[in-house]
Amino acid sequence: MADGRGATEIPASVDARLKLSATGGLRASADINVVNASFGVTSAGFDVTDAATTLAGYAGNDPTALAAITGIQAMTLSPYSVVAEWTPPPQPERRIEWGYGRPVNVYDIAGRLPSVPVLRDRCRALAVLELIQGTGYEYYSYTAWGDDEAALMSNGSGDEYTIVFGEAGVFIRLFDHESAMSPYAAGDDMELWPGLLDGLPPEFAEHVTEPAFCHDDDLIATAVLWRRTTDDHWHAGAGITFPPSRGPYDISPDGTDRLGILCDDIVDGYVDFATDYYETDIDRNAVAHVAALRPLTDDVVRALNPESGLAAVRTEVAATGYPIASAVS
């Protein structure tokens, strides 16, 4: 971070974060200072509006922490233009080896997703595995969603999905910010890609206007899937025509390859993901324990994260509905 006093390099050990959501939300934090705001994309970057910050402040004197706080406040609370250089977080390698010989799309995923109970269990297990990593920013999470429950994925770079488990069934909304099918690619018109919602049952209509999924009143999605409680398979919009592939690394035109980890047993998928994303080895047997939804023990938590323990994650894990082993007296 550079200002009139000089330049300070902020190491990774300082927990400074800036998250931009696909629906125009911004959250920046450093130490105990948090700023929540809205942002709008401009030709030169983005404008921040409606910024609100916590009343608590940093009482220390670590120059790197102070620099991070100064930088965040400059980007979010200052009336002046700020130049920022951003290094994206490491992303797991995107690969699906289903033998299609072409990019994977929503119809492929619809044919591979498991039943609702199995899908819920896999989502819950992924969320618990992420909670145990203890980063404070989970790639996968599981939470209450009004009267329903939801599994979420967010990679911190603008790609995300939400799987809402409700009384009527399950609704999946996914957004890939680099996809040619993005509403933002349509310019000021913000048009949803044709066909995405064709055939959507009225039971799921409320999700199309869900504020968490929308920018202003426009649904932000590159893929939508659904399954009612009375259905025996998954559905997607009828007659979607996908954009042409942009090269050998364009493995999914709508970003639905990100749901691929849920289409098979998650053990190997999560081991590969965590090895890439966290750049560390991970105990496969412990991952298998969690994937099977066996009661969580202190030994399993420590096998996945030697710096943690069951006591440290008990409350958050319990909130997901995952079973926890009884304490031994």
Results as ranks from 00 to 15, higher is better:
Thr297Asn: 00
Ser154Met: 05
Asp31Phe: 00
Leu113Phe: 06
Pro244Asn: 03
Val287Met: 04
Glu206Gly: 10
His235Thr: 09
Leu129His: 09
Ser115Ile: 00
Leu262Arg: 07
Asp265Phe: 02
Leu126His: 10
His289Asp: 07
Asp15Ala: 13
Thr320Glu: 08
Leu55Gln: 12
Glu130Val: 07
Ala51Val: 04
Asp299Arg: 15
Ala150Arg: 15
Gly309Ile: 00
Thr229Tyr: 02
His289Ala: 01
Ile32Thr: 14
Leu196Asp: 09
Thr87Val: 13
Ala52Glu: 14
Pro90Phe: 04
Phe175Thr: 04
Pro323Arg: 06
Leu26His: 10
Glu203Leu: 10
Phe165Leu: 09
Glu316Phe: 12
Trp98Cys: 07
Ala212His: 02
Ala319Lys: 04
Ser78Cys: 09
Ser141Ile: 04
Ser154Thr: 02
Ser43Ala: 14
Ala236Lys: 05
Met181Cys: 00
Pro11Gln: 06
Asn285Val: 07
Ala236Tyr: 01
Pro295Glu: 05
Asp108Tyr: 10
Phe242Arg: 03
Tyr80Ile: 01
Ile240Gln: 05
Tyr137Pro: 03
Ala168Trp: 01
Leu129Cys: 09
Phe46Glu: 08
Leu310Asp: 02
Ala56Arg: 15
Ala74Arg: 07
Ile163Ala: 09
Tyr140Lys: 00
Trp86Phe: 14
Tyr107Thr: 13
Glu85His: 12
Arg27Pro: 11
Ala84Trp: 09
Ala144Asp: 09
Ala291His: 04
Gly6Met: 01
Pro103Val: 05
Ile251Lys: 15
Ser179Val: 08
Asp268Lys: 15
Gln73Ser: 03
Ile266Glu: 04
Gly60Gln: 11
Asp254Ile: 14
